[in-house]
Design a protein around this nucleic acid. Sequence first.
DNA 1: TTAAACTTTCAATAATTATTGAAATTTTGT
DNA 2: ACAAAATTTCAATAATTATTGAAAGTTTAA
Lengths: 167, 167
Amino acid sequence: MEYIEAKEKFISTWGSLGSLWGINKAMAQIQALLFISTKPLSMEDIMHDLKISRGNTSMNLRQLMDWGIVTKVLVSGERKEFFTTEKDVQELARIVAKERSRREIKPVIKVLEEVSSIKDDGTEKTKELIIQTKALKDLTDDLDTLMNKLVNQKQNWLTKSVLKLMK
Amino acid sequence: MEYIEAKEKFISTWGSLGSLWGINKAMAQIQALLFISTKPLSMEDIMHDLKISRGNTSMNLRQLMDWGIVTKVLVSGERKEFFTTEKDVQELARIVAKERSRREIKPVIKVLEEVSSIKDDGTEKTKELIIQTKALKDLTDDLDTLMNKLVNQKQNWLTKSVLKLMK
DNA sequence: TTAAACTTTCAATAATTATTGAAATTTTGT
DNA sequence: ACAAAATTTCAATAATTATTGAAAGTTTAA
């Protein structure tokens, strides 16, 4: 497999995987492109390389910056803006985990809390609703806590955690 | 909040959260409905309750059964089929984690492996592609291993793991 | 201050994904 | 073996989501 084929394979796989870590295809592809680039890229570079429109590039770059995954860099002597992504995979995972917790998990926990604390009217179905949503709330809470714990251990958190659980 | 409102809130929240755990809205809503039901439900019950078509109900029930989340139960004296879902949240999490690993994560690891093992032609961009996809492969591998480790500890795995990591 | 370079916005459109519903198929009781 | 009951299939359609591209807006160099 040659460079160009490998590059395309990586970008398209990462793009279609976007849903797994909660972002859309174009966003994931832009991030992938920056991730394997040896230098910062301009909007022009990105739109030509990925064959997507200027508008699309602009919107998705902004989203990536909102997530904190991509940052603008100034290239001296250049008028246009250049972009780069976090290159350390562990730091990347940390950012993604934090954002998903904040954007998706925390709000769900809140709803589960509300639902599980309705008044028990004594009927079987109400009891079941309360019991089950409470259990789901506790599980989600635990998973969220675990994820944030993992992710806040800076140095080699993953390897350390895996080792801990293995023994 | 009354039962009916709480029930609807739970089902719609869980439904829109489907994407978080990798299934579609109808699938997630059917699972949610079964999850808080005190007894197995028929296809008829489900389609009326969620106001979705017979075809949709049938297809999504089959998918839930493929995932191993929902099972058919025989109700004596009844001709039609009844369905129920796994009621234990930890077991549910275990099933979901296993399936996502198998369906999504493992295939990605395979691609990353292929891409990261292309021939190093000495150019800087090829070196970068190899380094970065290798790092991503290692991370994904570690996360997958960690997830499966967590999920294979039957009794109270989550609480135990969280405690372990906290100290 | 001006105009070229660059970026953003957003209504229109395209692409994708989910849902319907009726016909075909399968299952079951008699 | 038959027909009623139940389920599945799938082409058509609807709903959702992503993308375009051109106009509007912003920045910068001279």
